[in-house]
Nucleic acid binder design. Structure first.
Lengths: 208, 208
DNA sequence: AGTTAACGAAACGATCCGTTTCTATGTGAG
DNA sequence: CTCACATAGAAACGGATCGTTTCGTTAACT
Protein backbone atom coordinates (compact mmCIF):
# COMPACT_ATOMS: atom_id res chain seq x y z
CA UNK A 1 0.00 0.00 0.00
CA UNK A 2 3.00 2.28 0.47
CA UNK A 3 0.93 4.34 2.83
CA UNK A 4 3.36 4.08 5.75
CA UNK A 5 5.44 7.12 4.97
CA UNK A 6 8.08 6.74 7.66
CA UNK A 7 9.41 3.69 5.86
CA UNK A 8 8.22 3.55 2.27
CA UNK A 9 7.16 7.11 1.54
CA UNK A 10 10.36 8.17 -0.17
CA UNK A 11 10.28 5.30 -2.63
CA UNK A 12 6.58 5.62 -3.46
CA UNK A 13 6.68 9.22 -4.66
CA UNK A 14 9.01 10.76 -7.23
CA UNK A 15 10.13 13.15 -4.54
CA UNK A 16 13.64 14.45 -5.01
CA UNK A 17 14.48 14.36 -1.31
CA UNK A 18 14.20 11.26 0.78
CA UNK A 19 14.76 12.83 4.16
CA UNK A 20 12.05 14.52 6.08
CA UNK A 21 12.26 18.27 5.86
CA UNK A 22 12.99 19.41 9.37
CA UNK A 23 11.69 22.70 10.60
CA UNK A 24 13.99 25.66 10.08
CA UNK A 25 12.43 27.54 12.95
CA UNK A 26 9.59 29.96 13.38
CA UNK A 27 9.46 31.11 9.76
CA UNK A 28 8.23 29.91 6.41
CA UNK A 29 10.42 27.28 4.80
CA UNK A 30 11.05 28.16 1.15
CA UNK A 31 11.92 24.55 0.38
CA UNK A 32 8.48 23.46 1.51
CA UNK A 33 6.86 26.19 -0.54
CA UNK A 34 8.81 25.23 -3.66
CA UNK A 35 8.14 21.52 -3.20
CA UNK A 36 4.40 22.12 -2.84
CA UNK A 37 4.17 24.39 -5.87
CA UNK A 38 6.15 21.96 -7.97
CA UNK A 39 4.06 19.00 -6.84
CA UNK A 40 0.88 20.88 -7.64
CA UNK A 41 2.21 21.88 -11.05
CA UNK A 42 3.24 18.33 -11.89
CA UNK A 43 -0.01 16.88 -10.66
CA UNK A 44 -2.07 19.28 -12.74
CA UNK A 45 0.10 18.54 -15.73
CA UNK A 46 -0.38 14.81 -15.33
CA UNK A 47 -4.00 14.50 -14.38
CA UNK A 48 -5.65 17.85 -14.86
CA UNK A 49 -8.32 19.07 -12.56
CA UNK A 50 -9.76 15.68 -11.84
CA UNK A 51 -7.18 13.69 -9.98
CA UNK A 52 -5.94 16.84 -8.31
CA UNK A 53 -6.21 16.70 -4.55
CA UNK A 54 -4.54 18.39 -1.63
CA UNK A 55 -3.80 14.99 -0.15
CA UNK A 56 -1.88 13.96 -3.23
CA UNK A 57 0.01 17.24 -3.43
CA UNK A 58 1.03 16.82 0.19
CA UNK A 59 2.16 13.26 -0.45
CA UNK A 60 4.26 14.21 -3.45
CA UNK A 61 5.73 17.26 -1.82
CA UNK A 62 6.54 15.37 1.35
CA UNK A 63 4.64 18.07 3.15
CA UNK A 64 1.97 18.11 5.78
CA UNK A 65 -1.51 19.18 4.87
CA UNK A 66 -1.53 21.83 7.60
CA UNK A 67 1.46 23.42 5.89
CA UNK A 68 -0.47 23.70 2.67
CA UNK A 69 -3.60 25.03 4.28
CA UNK A 70 -1.56 27.52 6.26
CA UNK A 71 -0.27 29.27 3.16
CA UNK A 72 -2.96 28.51 0.59
CA UNK A 73 -6.32 28.62 2.34
CA UNK A 74 -8.17 27.46 -0.78
CA UNK A 75 -7.26 25.44 -3.82
CA UNK A 76 -7.66 28.50 -5.94
CA UNK A 77 -4.82 30.27 -4.20
CA UNK A 78 -2.68 27.33 -5.11
CA UNK A 79 -3.88 27.31 -8.71
CA UNK A 80 -3.18 30.98 -9.05
CA UNK A 81 0.35 30.62 -7.74
CA UNK A 82 1.04 27.72 -10.06
CA UNK A 83 -0.35 29.56 -13.08
CA UNK A 84 1.45 32.77 -12.23
CA UNK A 85 4.79 31.06 -12.06
CA UNK A 86 4.52 29.78 -15.60
CA UNK A 87 2.85 32.71 -17.22
CA UNK A 88 5.43 35.38 -16.50
CA UNK A 89 8.21 34.26 -18.81
CA UNK A 90 6.13 33.60 -21.88
CA UNK A 91 3.58 35.69 -23.74
CA UNK A 92 4.94 39.04 -24.70
CA UNK A 93 2.25 40.92 -26.61
CA UNK A 94 3.62 41.55 -30.09
CA UNK A 95 3.72 44.99 -31.66
CA UNK A 96 3.66 44.62 -35.42
CA UNK A 97 1.96 47.90 -36.15
CA UNK A 98 -1.33 46.27 -37.10
CA UNK A 99 -3.96 45.20 -34.59
CA UNK A 100 -5.09 42.17 -36.57
CA UNK A 101 -1.58 40.84 -36.88
CA UNK A 102 -0.91 41.48 -33.19
CA UNK A 103 -4.02 39.62 -32.14
CA UNK A 104 -3.39 36.71 -34.45
CA UNK A 105 0.14 36.27 -33.19
CA UNK A 106 -0.82 36.70 -29.56
CA UNK A 107 -3.71 34.28 -29.78
CA UNK A 108 -1.51 31.66 -31.40
CA UNK A 109 1.05 32.08 -28.65
CA UNK A 110 -1.56 31.94 -25.94
CA UNK A 111 -3.12 28.74 -27.24
CA UNK A 112 0.28 27.13 -27.67
CA UNK A 113 1.11 28.14 -24.12
CA UNK A 114 -2.13 26.58 -22.94
CA UNK A 115 -1.49 23.42 -24.92
CA UNK A 116 2.15 22.87 -24.18
CA UNK A 117 2.38 23.72 -20.50
CA UNK A 118 0.23 22.73 -17.53
CA UNK A 119 -1.26 26.19 -17.71
CA UNK A 120 -4.19 25.33 -19.90
CA UNK A 121 -5.32 22.72 -17.47
CA UNK A 122 -4.63 24.99 -14.56
CA UNK A 123 -6.69 27.78 -16.02
CA UNK A 124 -9.54 25.43 -16.82
CA UNK A 125 -9.38 24.22 -13.24
CA UNK A 126 -9.52 27.79 -12.05
CA UNK A 127 -12.65 28.51 -14.03
CA UNK A 128 -14.30 25.26 -12.99
CA UNK A 129 -13.50 25.90 -9.36
CA UNK A 130 -15.04 29.33 -9.69
CA UNK A 131 -18.37 27.72 -10.49
CA UNK A 132 -18.49 26.03 -7.10
CA UNK A 133 -16.87 28.48 -4.73
CA UNK A 134 -17.43 32.17 -4.21
CA UNK A 135 -13.87 32.98 -3.14
CA UNK A 136 -12.61 31.27 -6.24
CA UNK A 137 -14.89 33.36 -8.40
CA UNK A 138 -13.86 36.64 -6.88
CA UNK A 139 -10.21 35.71 -7.17
CA UNK A 140 -10.73 34.92 -10.82
CA UNK A 141 -12.70 38.06 -11.50
CA UNK A 142 -10.91 40.65 -9.44
CA UNK A 143 -7.37 39.43 -9.38
CA UNK A 144 -6.73 37.18 -12.29
CA UNK A 145 -8.72 38.52 -15.19
CA UNK A 146 -7.63 42.15 -14.79
CA UNK A 147 -4.01 41.12 -14.79
CA UNK A 148 -4.36 39.04 -17.92
CA UNK A 149 -6.36 41.81 -19.57
CA UNK A 150 -3.49 44.23 -19.27
CA UNK A 151 -1.58 42.64 -22.13
CA UNK A 152 -4.62 42.44 -24.36
CA UNK A 153 -5.73 45.94 -23.58
CA UNK A 154 -2.32 47.17 -24.58
CA UNK A 155 -2.77 45.83 -28.08
CA UNK A 156 -6.26 47.20 -28.48
CA UNK A 157 -5.23 50.59 -27.14
CA UNK A 158 -2.44 50.78 -29.68
CA UNK A 159 -4.95 49.84 -32.35
CA UNK A 160 -7.27 52.59 -31.16
CA UNK A 161 -4.41 55.09 -31.25
CA UNK A 162 -3.81 54.12 -34.86
CA UNK A 163 -7.48 54.54 -35.62
CA UNK A 164 -8.08 50.86 -36.33
CA UNK A 165 -10.82 50.62 -33.73
CA UNK A 166 -12.76 53.22 -31.81
CA UNK A 167 -11.51 53.91 -28.31
CA UNK A 168 -15.08 53.69 -27.04
CA UNK A 169 -15.32 50.12 -28.24
CA UNK A 170 -12.21 48.78 -26.55
CA UNK A 171 -13.98 47.49 -23.46
CA UNK A 172 -16.55 45.59 -25.46
CA UNK A 173 -13.87 44.26 -27.77
CA UNK A 174 -11.90 43.00 -24.79
CA UNK A 175 -14.90 41.08 -23.53
CA UNK A 176 -15.47 39.56 -26.93
CA UNK A 177 -11.83 38.59 -27.29
CA UNK A 178 -11.69 36.98 -23.86
CA UNK A 179 -14.94 35.17 -24.49
CA UNK A 180 -13.60 33.75 -27.72
CA UNK A 181 -10.56 32.33 -25.96
CA UNK A 182 -12.59 30.96 -23.08
CA UNK A 183 -15.04 29.11 -25.27
CA UNK A 184 -12.27 27.51 -27.24
CA UNK A 185 -10.33 26.55 -24.11
CA UNK A 186 -13.32 25.25 -22.18
CA UNK A 187 -14.52 23.15 -25.07
CA UNK A 188 -11.01 21.84 -25.66
CA UNK A 189 -10.64 23.39 -29.08
CA UNK A 190 -7.34 25.21 -28.80
CA UNK A 191 -5.58 23.17 -31.44
CA UNK A 192 -3.41 25.09 -33.87
CA UNK A 193 -6.01 26.83 -36.04
CA UNK A 194 -4.69 29.94 -37.79
CA UNK A 195 -7.75 30.17 -40.01
CA UNK A 196 -10.24 30.03 -37.18
CA UNK A 197 -8.27 32.61 -35.26
CA UNK A 198 -7.88 34.82 -38.27
CA UNK A 199 -11.57 34.76 -39.11
CA UNK A 200 -12.47 35.97 -35.63
CA UNK A 201 -9.64 38.45 -35.30
CA UNK A 202 -10.55 40.16 -38.53
CA UNK A 203 -13.95 40.94 -37.08
CA UNK A 204 -12.45 42.42 -33.95
CA UNK A 205 -9.67 44.42 -35.53
CA UNK A 206 -11.74 46.58 -37.85
CA UNK A 207 -13.09 49.93 -36.78
CA UNK A 208 -16.73 50.80 -36.95
CA UNK B 1 -30.02 13.09 13.15
CA UNK B 2 -33.11 12.23 11.16
CA UNK B 3 -31.07 9.70 9.26
CA UNK B 4 -33.30 6.72 10.04
CA UNK B 5 -35.62 6.97 7.09
CA UNK B 6 -38.09 4.27 8.03
CA UNK B 7 -39.32 6.42 10.90
CA UNK B 8 -38.26 10.02 10.46
CA UNK B 9 -37.43 10.25 6.77
CA UNK B 10 -40.73 11.66 5.66
CA UNK B 11 -40.62 14.53 8.13
CA UNK B 12 -36.98 15.42 7.52
CA UNK B 13 -37.28 16.03 3.79
CA UNK B 14 -39.80 18.24 1.98
CA UNK B 15 -40.88 15.18 0.10
CA UNK B 16 -44.50 15.25 -0.96
CA UNK B 17 -45.10 11.57 -0.38
CA UNK B 18 -44.52 9.89 2.93
CA UNK B 19 -44.96 6.34 1.84
CA UNK B 20 -42.22 4.34 0.26
CA UNK B 21 -42.56 3.98 -3.46
CA UNK B 22 -42.92 0.29 -4.09
CA UNK B 23 -41.91 -1.25 -7.35
CA UNK B 24 -44.57 -1.26 -10.04
CA UNK B 25 -43.06 -4.25 -11.72
CA UNK B 26 -40.37 -4.88 -14.27
CA UNK B 27 -40.52 -1.42 -15.84
CA UNK B 28 -39.41 2.10 -15.12
CA UNK B 29 -41.52 3.93 -12.58
CA UNK B 30 -42.42 7.40 -13.90
CA UNK B 31 -43.09 8.62 -10.37
CA UNK B 32 -39.53 7.81 -9.37
CA UNK B 33 -38.19 9.50 -12.48
CA UNK B 34 -40.23 12.63 -11.84
CA UNK B 35 -39.29 12.75 -8.17
CA UNK B 36 -35.59 12.45 -8.97
CA UNK B 37 -35.65 15.12 -11.66
CA UNK B 38 -37.59 17.48 -9.43
CA UNK B 39 -35.25 16.89 -6.50
CA UNK B 40 -32.24 17.54 -8.71
CA UNK B 41 -33.80 20.68 -10.08
CA UNK B 42 -34.65 22.02 -6.65
CA UNK B 43 -31.26 21.15 -5.24
CA UNK B 44 -29.46 22.93 -8.06
CA UNK B 45 -31.74 25.90 -7.64
CA UNK B 46 -31.04 26.09 -3.93
CA UNK B 47 -27.36 25.36 -3.70
CA UNK B 48 -25.94 25.39 -7.19
CA UNK B 49 -23.24 23.05 -8.24
CA UNK B 50 -21.56 22.87 -4.88
CA UNK B 51 -23.92 21.19 -2.50
CA UNK B 52 -25.21 19.04 -5.30
CA UNK B 53 -24.73 15.35 -4.65
CA UNK B 54 -26.34 12.16 -5.75
CA UNK B 55 -26.81 11.18 -2.14
CA UNK B 56 -28.81 14.31 -1.43
CA UNK B 57 -30.91 13.94 -4.56
CA UNK B 58 -31.71 10.38 -3.54
CA UNK B 59 -32.66 11.49 -0.03
CA UNK B 60 -34.96 14.23 -1.28
CA UNK B 61 -36.54 12.12 -3.95
CA UNK B 62 -37.08 9.24 -1.57
CA UNK B 63 -35.27 7.14 -4.10
CA UNK B 64 -32.47 4.65 -3.90
CA UNK B 65 -29.12 5.50 -5.36
CA UNK B 66 -29.15 2.41 -7.56
CA UNK B 67 -32.30 3.73 -9.17
CA UNK B 68 -30.55 6.96 -10.04
CA UNK B 69 -27.44 5.29 -11.36
CA UNK B 70 -29.53 2.88 -13.37
CA UNK B 71 -31.10 5.65 -15.44
CA UNK B 72 -28.48 8.40 -15.25
CA UNK B 73 -25.06 6.78 -15.32
CA UNK B 74 -23.26 10.11 -14.76
CA UNK B 75 -24.16 13.40 -13.17
CA UNK B 76 -24.06 15.01 -16.56
CA UNK B 77 -26.93 12.94 -17.81
CA UNK B 78 -28.93 14.22 -14.91
CA UNK B 79 -27.89 17.84 -15.54
CA UNK B 80 -28.84 17.53 -19.16
CA UNK B 81 -32.28 16.21 -18.36
CA UNK B 82 -32.88 18.95 -15.81
CA UNK B 83 -31.71 21.68 -18.16
CA UNK B 84 -33.65 20.30 -21.09
CA UNK B 85 -36.89 20.28 -19.13
CA UNK B 86 -36.68 23.99 -18.39
CA UNK B 87 -35.27 25.25 -21.61
CA UNK B 88 -37.92 24.12 -24.02
CA UNK B 89 -40.73 26.54 -23.28
CA UNK B 90 -38.81 29.78 -23.12
CA UNK B 91 -36.56 31.65 -25.50
CA UNK B 92 -38.11 32.29 -28.86
CA UNK B 93 -35.60 34.16 -30.99
CA UNK B 94 -37.19 37.51 -31.88
CA UNK B 95 -37.53 38.76 -35.43
CA UNK B 96 -37.65 42.53 -35.42
CA UNK B 97 -36.14 43.03 -38.83
CA UNK B 98 -32.83 44.31 -37.47
CA UNK B 99 -30.03 42.04 -36.30
CA UNK B 100 -28.87 44.35 -33.52
CA UNK B 101 -32.35 44.60 -32.06
CA UNK B 102 -32.85 40.84 -32.34
CA UNK B 103 -29.60 40.12 -30.52
CA UNK B 104 -30.23 42.66 -27.81
CA UNK B 105 -33.66 41.27 -27.09
CA UNK B 106 -32.52 37.65 -27.23
CA UNK B 107 -29.55 38.26 -24.96
CA UNK B 108 -31.72 39.99 -22.42
CA UNK B 109 -34.14 37.08 -22.45
CA UNK B 110 -31.37 34.54 -22.17
CA UNK B 111 -29.78 36.22 -19.20
CA UNK B 112 -33.12 36.63 -17.47
CA UNK B 113 -33.79 32.96 -18.08
CA UNK B 114 -30.42 32.10 -16.57
CA UNK B 115 -31.03 34.38 -13.59
CA UNK B 116 -34.59 33.48 -12.79
CA UNK B 117 -34.65 29.74 -13.24
CA UNK B 118 -32.28 27.02 -12.04
CA UNK B 119 -30.98 26.89 -15.57
CA UNK B 120 -28.14 29.32 -15.14
CA UNK B 121 -26.73 27.28 -12.31
CA UNK B 122 -27.35 24.07 -14.16
CA UNK B 123 -25.54 25.31 -17.22
CA UNK B 124 -22.62 26.55 -15.15
CA UNK B 125 -22.49 23.14 -13.50
CA UNK B 126 -22.44 21.50 -16.88
CA UNK B 127 -19.52 23.61 -18.04
CA UNK B 128 -17.64 23.03 -14.81
CA UNK B 129 -18.24 19.31 -14.98
CA UNK B 130 -16.96 19.35 -18.53
CA UNK B 131 -13.58 20.45 -17.27
CA UNK B 132 -13.17 17.24 -15.28
CA UNK B 133 -14.99 14.62 -17.32
CA UNK B 134 -14.69 13.74 -20.96
CA UNK B 135 -18.27 12.50 -21.39
CA UNK B 136 -19.52 15.77 -19.95
CA UNK B 137 -17.44 17.71 -22.41
CA UNK B 138 -18.66 15.81 -25.41
CA UNK B 139 -22.25 16.15 -24.28
CA UNK B 140 -21.76 19.86 -23.93
CA UNK B 141 -19.99 20.22 -27.25
CA UNK B 142 -21.92 17.84 -29.44
CA UNK B 143 -25.40 18.02 -28.02
CA UNK B 144 -25.95 21.23 -26.12
CA UNK B 145 -24.00 23.82 -28.01
CA UNK B 146 -25.33 22.91 -31.45
CA UNK B 147 -28.87 22.98 -30.19
CA UNK B 148 -28.50 26.41 -28.65
CA UNK B 149 -26.66 27.61 -31.72
CA UNK B 150 -29.63 26.89 -33.90
CA UNK B 151 -31.60 29.80 -32.49
CA UNK B 152 -28.70 32.17 -32.66
CA UNK B 153 -27.71 31.11 -36.13
CA UNK B 154 -31.23 31.83 -37.28
CA UNK B 155 -30.90 35.46 -36.27
CA UNK B 156 -27.49 35.87 -37.85
CA UNK B 157 -28.59 34.18 -41.05
CA UNK B 158 -31.52 36.54 -41.33
CA UNK B 159 -29.12 39.41 -40.77
CA UNK B 160 -26.87 38.08 -43.49
CA UNK B 161 -29.82 37.81 -45.85
CA UNK B 162 -30.58 41.47 -45.20
CA UNK B 163 -26.95 42.35 -45.86
CA UNK B 164 -26.25 43.43 -42.28
CA UNK B 165 -23.38 40.99 -41.95
CA UNK B 166 -21.45 38.92 -44.46
CA UNK B 167 -22.57 35.33 -44.76
CA UNK B 168 -18.93 34.24 -44.60
CA UNK B 169 -18.58 35.79 -41.17
CA UNK B 170 -21.54 34.08 -39.53
CA UNK B 171 -19.56 31.21 -38.04
CA UNK B 172 -17.01 33.50 -36.45
CA UNK B 173 -19.76 35.79 -35.20
CA UNK B 174 -21.52 32.87 -33.58
CA UNK B 175 -18.39 31.92 -31.70
CA UNK B 176 -17.91 35.49 -30.53
CA UNK B 177 -21.50 35.77 -29.42
CA UNK B 178 -21.42 32.50 -27.50
CA UNK B 179 -18.13 33.46 -25.90
CA UNK B 180 -19.57 36.74 -24.74
CA UNK B 181 -22.45 35.01 -23.01
CA UNK B 182 -20.21 32.37 -21.47
CA UNK B 183 -17.80 34.85 -19.97
CA UNK B 184 -20.61 36.82 -18.44
CA UNK B 185 -22.32 33.72 -17.08
CA UNK B 186 -19.18 32.10 -15.73
CA UNK B 187 -18.06 35.25 -13.99
CA UNK B 188 -21.55 35.79 -12.58
CA UNK B 189 -22.17 39.01 -14.46
CA UNK B 190 -25.52 38.36 -16.05
CA UNK B 191 -27.33 41.09 -14.22
CA UNK B 192 -29.70 43.22 -16.24
CA UNK B 193 -27.29 45.33 -18.28
CA UNK B 194 -28.80 46.71 -21.48
CA UNK B 195 -25.88 49.04 -22.07
CA UNK B 196 -23.23 46.35 -21.74
CA UNK B 197 -25.22 44.11 -24.05
CA UNK B 198 -25.85 46.87 -26.53
CA UNK B 199 -22.20 47.87 -26.71
CA UNK B 200 -21.20 44.35 -27.62
CA UNK B 201 -24.11 43.64 -29.92
CA UNK B 202 -23.44 46.74 -31.97
CA UNK B 203 -20.00 45.38 -32.77
CA UNK B 204 -21.40 42.06 -33.88
CA UNK B 205 -24.35 43.32 -35.88
CA UNK B 206 -22.49 45.52 -38.33
CA UNK B 207 -21.19 44.15 -41.60
CA UNK B 208 -17.59 44.44 -42.58
C1' DA C 1 16.84 30.78 28.54
C1' DG C 2 12.23 30.99 27.28
C1' DT C 3 8.75 32.15 23.88
C1' DT C 4 7.09 31.60 19.54
C1' DA C 5 5.98 29.74 15.13
C1' DA C 6 6.73 26.65 11.47
C1' DC C 7 7.39 21.83 10.11
C1' DG C 8 5.62 16.93 9.07
C1' DA C 9 3.12 12.81 10.76
C1' DA C 10 -0.95 10.89 11.98
C1' DA C 11 -5.46 10.63 12.91
C1' DC C 12 -10.14 12.63 13.34
C1' DG C 13 -15.25 12.97 11.74
C1' DA C 14 -17.76 14.11 7.63
C1' DT C 15 -19.22 13.66 3.13
C1' DC C 16 -19.58 11.70 -1.17
C1' DC C 17 -18.66 8.28 -4.62
C1' DG C 18 -20.13 4.13 -7.16
C1' DT C 19 -21.27 -0.61 -6.09
C1' DT C 20 -23.22 -4.57 -3.86
C1' DT C 21 -26.58 -7.13 -1.22
C1' DC C 22 -31.04 -7.59 0.29
C1' DT C 23 -36.27 -7.92 0.30
C1' DA C 24 -40.56 -6.71 -1.79
C1' DT C 25 -43.22 -5.86 -5.82
C1' DG C 26 -45.53 -6.35 -10.10
C1' DT C 27 -45.10 -7.47 -15.34
C1' DG C 28 -45.38 -10.47 -18.90
C1' DA C 29 -44.22 -14.86 -21.23
C1' DG C 30 -45.02 -19.75 -21.17
C1' DC D 1 -51.61 -20.00 -13.25
C1' DT D 2 -46.89 -20.03 -12.58
C1' DC D 3 -42.52 -18.37 -12.61
C1' DA D 4 -38.42 -15.94 -14.53
C1' DC D 5 -37.27 -11.30 -14.60
C1' DA D 6 -36.61 -6.38 -14.04
C1' DT D 7 -37.67 -2.82 -11.07
C1' DA D 8 -37.92 -0.25 -6.54
C1' DG D 9 -35.79 1.33 -2.13
C1' DA D 10 -32.93 0.37 2.08
C1' DA D 11 -28.66 -0.38 3.84
C1' DA D 12 -24.11 -1.03 3.95
C1' DC D 13 -19.59 -1.43 1.81
C1' DG D 14 -14.54 0.25 0.71
C1' DG D 15 -12.33 4.07 -0.89
C1' DA D 16 -11.16 8.93 -1.53
C1' DT D 17 -11.05 13.51 -0.10
C1' DC D 18 -11.99 17.28 2.74
C1' DG D 19 -10.53 20.54 6.35
C1' DT D 20 -9.09 20.24 11.19
C1' DT D 21 -6.76 18.79 15.30
C1' DT D 22 -3.14 16.81 18.07
C1' DC D 23 1.54 16.00 18.72
C1' DG D 24 6.60 16.00 18.95
C1' DT D 25 10.50 18.40 16.77
C1' DT D 26 13.21 22.21 15.26
C1' DA D 27 15.26 26.66 15.23
C1' DA D 28 14.68 31.73 15.02
C1' DC D 29 13.71 35.62 17.80
C1' DT D 30 13.60 38.25 22.18
Amino acid sequence: MARTPAVTGASAAPAPSKARRASIGARRDPRAEAAILEAARALLAEKGYSGFSIDEVARRAGAGKPTIYRWWPTRVDLFIDVYSQEKSATLVPPDTGALAADLEAYTGLLWAFWRETPSGRTFRALIAESQTSAPALSALRDKFLPERLKDVRLMFDRGAARGEVRADDVEALLTLYIGFNWVRLLTDRIEDDPQGISAVVRLLACAR
